[in-house]
Design a protein around this nucleic acid. Structure first.
Lengths: 210, 210, 210, 210
DNA sequence: GATGAATGAGCTTTCATTCAT
DNA sequence: GATGAATGAAAGCTCATTCAT
């Protein structure tokens, strides 16, 4: 368990000053992911940091503001990774494989954050929720563009509905959020390999003349 | 609150006494699905029924008990439907198609309930959460058994990992919980057709000799 | 001290149900008057009633709402009394005397309320503050109209500025809010008599030809 | 809050060190007058100075100490002005006019301070409140002495109650604290003239033989 | 069956204050 | 002189729950 132990600061101030805010965002992500935004208290977050609850408010205007930070933290990075792949060389199949693999890698590395983005962002107030949603739609559009161009070029099956396919890809790739780490013997790499295999070829054996 | 006059709805009343409890479960499902279990108050549930908040406690011992009822309501039905298909005639491909279609139909009909089962059951206390989890695992096992027999019989690709494939099927089929009704022009039927198509054949065109 | 002792309810429920809200308004008035709105806590109000603090919120949406009730409670009555006099018989001098006397009587009877109206209403949110201010201005206008008609008729000195005179009358009549009950041997009746005497004749002896 | 860059105002700084404390007293007076002592935060005071909140504590031991400074600041000056007039030449009528005029002038010049003295001093702890109260009573006694001697000499009406008259004079003279600056077209000079006129002659026309 | 009244526990947030630097 | 960081205490408010009626 890479998170349970040893995170109590040595005294007040042990890391750089900018770092403290990030520590809080990380603790908030972990706590919100575990208990849900509304099920978690700011005290829970403080406990995880060995901090007094009131001190959190030195760094964040409100609990909501902390959730917003959590949700914004990695969205940008995931989009950039996807964009790089989408703008790189290779056909639609290679691109999609790359995007899926990257997505699952991010998910494995930053599970708490992704959980918050997917499940807790809806509790944000309208405005900041809008900001996250726009980012997510940008991400979706990148993937959908790859799929559309694949369909057009014949790299993907011509009878696909691009929109539903995009939603399906995301649904599939986000699913591990619910069970990652709980399925013994299943690593992110396993999942990535299996999902790519499944997405591209399906679960039925090759259909020669279809 | 001393708010003088009445508010009794004319409609809902006049049904049997057993029916009232079900109305409450339905209201709770809707409210918990919309606001999250912890984000919803019992007052929210009462409001939706034109009832006083204290009256809910005539029907339910606690908020948690209501959530448990919500989560248990349809799980049984979904399992039965899956079992029927699994025990019926046809190969693994047909069975899987049938199960996916049924699942999506249930999801479309009882969206609020499924949302609660998927997202809110984790807030139940250990014991009742265990009960739901056991039901879900029974459901999964039915599907996994179909997949395993399909792999064994060659109806499905032999290089699949049955466990991950099962998780993938569920991940895919549960995904619409997040966007059903928000994607204009996409019906449950569309989704079912697309998902079956995708699951079985993947998104890349047929690969003759693999 | 007509308020210090014996107000603890015998059990829960001892007075009528509508009465409870009024008791709270009265307690709030007393507490806000004594400690200032921001210096008083809802706990202080609850303590004075032998009630739990949370129970206040069964009757009032917020601390601010309680202050609003306090401020609105007697304003209407004071205006009505003034209107009655203003619309009654008699010259401007008699009317003004009557209004001053009534005002001081109200002030003596409902000291805590008047203190809140005068000192604490400014802490209300814009909207409800506006409501109180409008009532106060209506009150002022009644008095100013009497003064203006008095000046016009010659019942009052012709060289007066009606506006400043009105403000002066109110300033004088509200002043006892700061010391009523603290000046030994000075009753409301004394004050009323003295103020009328002063207002009408001033403190210098009669000036025959001015 | 980790807010990187500077905010030091170019203007205020560069004065002597003693001056800074006075700036703070002035800012505190303005803020306390506007929001009330308990409604104002030390942050509000710091904001008004472009200062960090913690820095205030270099100059003042506590918020209360700042209020005490505010309340003491001008009381002495007002008393001295009153004493000068009281000990000067002229009859009671002239002296009273002078005192009233001076009081209103002070009030106009130092509105925030006077507001705090009148409305906020009651929130001081016993001891320092006592100090202010003693000063106020000294002030009152000076005025009351003038009134008493005026009554004795016949310069003022013989049927007056000296105590109530003193309270009335103060009540009247302090009233503008509530509306000064909000009554369009009314200057301190107007008020002074009107109040003297009113106090001495009342609002009814001269009564020759009373 | 249903509700008005009440409450204990807990929540987010604010704030005056301290202190090392 | 001034400040960033932290904190204890308390505030207003919400909420699930209880209970007499």
């Amino acid at each position: 368990m890479p998170q349970g132990a040893a995170m109590r600061a040595a005294g007040p101030r042990a890391n750089g000053p900018r770092r403290r805010a990030e520590e809080i965002v990380e603790a908030a992500a972990a706590v919100f992911a575990e208990k849900g935004y509304h099920g978690a208290s700011t005290q829970d977050v403080a406990d995880r940091l060995g901090m007094r609850q009131a001190s959190l408010y030195y760094y964040f205007r409100s609990k909501e503001a902390a959730l917003e930070q959590v949700c914004l933290r990695d969205v940008g990075m995931m989009i950039e990774r996807a964009l790089e792949v989408a703008n790189g060389d290779g056909g639609a199949v290679e691109k999609l494989s790359g995007i899926v693999r990257n997505h699952l890698l991010s998910l494995g590395e930053r599970l708490a954050f992704v959980r918050c983005i997917l499940r807790e962002r809806r509790f944000l107030p309208k405005e900041s929720r809008g900001r996250i949603n726009r980012a997510m739609r940008r991400y979706e559009r990148i993937v959908q563009a790859v799929i559309e161009s694949g369909i057009a070029s014949g790299a993907l099956r011509r009878d696909l509905d691009a929109r539903v396919t995009t939603l399906a890809v995301f649904g599939l790739c986000n699913a591990p959020v619910d069970w990652l780490g709980k399925e013994p013997g299943v690593t992110v790499e396993d999942i990535a390999r299996s999902f790519v295999q499944l997405l591209l070829g399906g679960i039925a054996p090759g259909r020669a003349g279809r």
